[in-house]
């Protein structure tokens, strides 16, 4: 009984994830500019990849033809899901920052762009990032070393 409920939940997650993926693909194809396409891409990665992977893990837990290997399979599925959940937003963040600060492509018409008002020009971005983070000083003793060369 409980295994059937788990199986149906997992299958529903896979199906819904596939539909999410199709929606994201259509959005990625049809949206006019880059920032809107990133909106579709986040739907594609979280709804279209993480959800079906977790669903596949649930299915693998109760899928009897796999035999005793099914826990290994479920472990792989949950690992992939957590990895995508961590990695995909970071990747989107870094690529959008590259497009915004590097001024790639054409920008949509905005009424007010507060990020641009606050931040300096493209050539100063590296400078700015460096200033905001506290770097260890040059003469600081290394924390971990095998041997001084």
């Amino acid at each position: 009984m409980i295994s059937e409920i788990i199986f149906i939940t997992g299958s529903m997650a896979i199906l819904i994830g596939a539909i999410y993926d199709l929606i994201a693909a259509i959005g990625l194809l049809r949206f006019p500019d880059f920032y809107m396409r990133t909106h579709a891409a986040t739907v594609g990665t979280i709804g279209g990849a993480t959800l079906p992977v977790f669903g596949a893990g649930l299915v693998a837990l109760v899928y009897h033809p796999l035999g005793s290997q099914r826990f290994f399979m479920a472990g792989i599925a949950f690992t992939v899901g957590i990895l995508i959940l961590v990695i995909a937003p970071t990747g989107s963040h870094s690529i959008i920052s590259a497009v915004y600060f590097g001024r790639i492509g054409k920008k949509p018409k905005l009424i007010v762009d507060q990020l641009e008002e606050d931040l300096p020009k493209r050539s100063d971005v590296a400078e700015l990032v460096r200033e905001h983070e506290e770097l260890p000083a040059e003469e600081e003793e290394p924390k971990f070393t095998f041997r001084r060369v």
């Binding site: 990895l83 990695i87 963040h93 990032v129 460096r130």
Partner: peptide, 17 residues
């Protein structure tokens, strides 16, 4: 030469990954 670190979010995720 300056150390070109990337921003905080990327560095934290990179450590984990």
């Amino acid at each position: 030469e300056p150390h070109r670190h990337m921003d905080l979010i990327t560095r934290a995720t990179t450590k984990l990954v």
